[in-house]
Nucleic acid binder design. Sequence first.
DNA 1: TAAGAATTGTAAACGATTTGACAGTCTTCG
DNA 2: CGAAGACTGTCAAATCGTTTACAATTCTTA
Lengths: 230, 230
Amino acid sequence: MKDIKTVLARCPLFSGFPEPAIDDLEGIARIRRFEANELIYSKGSAISTLNIIASGVVRISSVNPAGREATLIMFSAGTWFGDSVFSPGMRRVYGATAHEAVTLIEIPGEAFRELMATYPEGYPVILDMVSRRLWAAMSIIEDDALRGVAARIGRRLLFLAEIQGNGDIGTDPVTIWITREHIANMMGMTRQGVHKWIKNFERSGLLELAYGRILLPDPTALQRHLETIE
Amino acid sequence: MKDIKTVLARCPLFSGFPEPAIDDLEGIARIRRFEANELIYSKGSAISTLNIIASGVVRISSVNPAGREATLIMFSAGTWFGDSVFSPGMRRVYGATAHEAVTLIEIPGEAFRELMATYPEGYPVILDMVSRRLWAAMSIIEDDALRGVAARIGRRLLFLAEIQGNGDIGTDPVTIWITREHIANMMGMTRQGVHKWIKNFERSGLLELAYGRILLPDPTALQRHLETIE
DNA sequence: TAAGAATTGTAAACGATTTGACAGTCTTCG
DNA sequence: CGAAGACTGTCAAATCGTTTACAATTCTTA
């Protein structure tokens, strides 16, 4: 693994901080490793840290009273999660689980808030990033409200491709490592319901299905297709 | 209407700013009034302002390619909207419409960003507020993924009650001014589909239906009821 | 490599929501 | 005050997703 400082320096969240701030960050950070499907923290936990993903993929999820779990969003290397650090005293709003094995850089909430106060020039970028997360969430609400099932599933797949691929979506093939069951849980549907639609996508040549993963040979083709349907 | 400074001073978003910052804010702010259903700004607009609601209710919405409009969220007096100001150069991500007649205090984006840089002690509160918005959005995604239709509608009604009532939900009656059609559009359902469920709530005495509005005699009763269903 | 666990494919029956069509009710505005 | 417009209640048919059940496939690990 690359050293902590390299990972921190490349994380967009910190791009507003001057170099000495990154050094300070390194000083308070701690590396932790989790195996696939290992719990990172659970909803309601009082310990709050900001986490930078050095490698791997993380699931953010919630559990309903009946015990059914839903994945709300996923994050991959280079991004961050644990935004309850921005609200002092706040408990974990959602749980986090390693989707694949992950290496995290953990930054204690209180120390991070002090660091921000010391280097206020870092705030604008952080505010920008949190805002963008907010729009990403709103965009999912938007999809649920005014798009058909096919478009919803397709857009969620592109979303996952963006996360698990190398940043932006292009014409390069991307493999999404996720089970159909997981997709169903993310969307409030059943595995069989999801199956019908992605099978259609496969028949159109927009994706290829395999055990535990979905391959998008050309993500932009799916993207274009979604614009033609409701 | 109360004067600008009083409204600004009471807006939680600015509670981290020192008094002189509020004075500066007042200097760059401008009052605007909109009638019910009047467009405040549309999605994609390049002009970006932070808006504080002095009175009235605002709808944030999006339109799909087929022309169908969905209300994503609503805001009322004392709160703010227009978070694209936190990302310099960003166009409006969603449109805003006056739900009831509103009086807004408009703060130009660029000037506001300069103000934040001048008084960095205001950042932590702003970051906290944006984070909370993010969780509110996630909580809607969560509802869609793991709750039944009845619970989803009920929770959305409580959400609207919180917005249109006086802050927090209590045992005091709250009148929600919204049409069933609007609720349906918010939830990706049809008017008839919503009808069936809220009629059930009415039969249980949890709410009263009227023309263009829904009365919650005791919001906490509805809240408790929602915990007993899936 | 063989067994077992996890994941996926498939289909019919069932249940629930949307569609489409009208009539009735409430408001507002000339 | 009366008419137009907006909103609401209802119903049957059609559509769509879930449920239920079982078989087949792929992966993991002993």
